[in-house]
């Protein structure tokens, strides 16, 4: 069965490229451009994984992550967070809020596909 990935990103070009990459990797892809829309899509589309940017209009990625984790119905949804490079506090905060992995921008396409795949397979973030 095809796995479903929800990409949440407000920057249209990046949303577009992530969409291309996820489709190419064989996923069923849904898109959202802000935090509120992301939560509605989690509700309606039941994705297996959310690829979640942090800086989002209306409701930021941390808040979306916290809300998903607070709902027992969504406990199996994998969350991979995306944010600008080098913000270490963000990484800690994201992992504490229950994200499964955390990827910094700019990312390599191959890496992001691998990390999404790994999170779906139930492996955590790569060691190191």
């Amino acid at each position: 069965m095809t796995q479903r990935v929800l990409v949440v990103e407000d920057e249209p070009n990046i949303l577009d490229s992530l969409s291309f990459l996820m489709k190419q990797a064989g996923f069923d892809v849904r898109l959202a451009r802000d935090g509120d829309a992301a939560l509605r899509m989690v509700e309606s589309a039941a994705p297996d994984l959310v690829l979640l940017d942090i800086m989002l209009p209306r409701r930021d990625g941390f808040d979306v992550c916290r809300t998903i984790r607070a709902n027992p119905e969504w406990k199996d949804v994998r969350i991979v967070m995306l944010t600008a490079k080098g913000r270490k506090p963000d990484r800690r905060k994201g992992m504490q809020l229950g994200a499964d992995d955390y990827i910094t921008k700019p990312f390599s396409n191959r890496e992001i596909v691998e990390r999404v795949q790994r999170a779906l397979d139930g492996g955590g973030p790569p060691a190191g």
Binding site: E11, N13, I14, S17, L18, F20, L21, Q24, M55, A84, K85, K105, P106, F107, S108, N109, R110
Partner: peptide
């Protein structure tokens, strides 16, 4: 500015790789 720079770079890197790999 740092966030905007990284955002632009993310796009550039990602699209360059798409063009290279496809």
């Amino acid at each position: 500015a740092r966030h905007r720079l990284l955002t632009r770079l993310t796009s550039i890197r990602s699209y360059s790789e798409i063009l290279r790999d496809n």
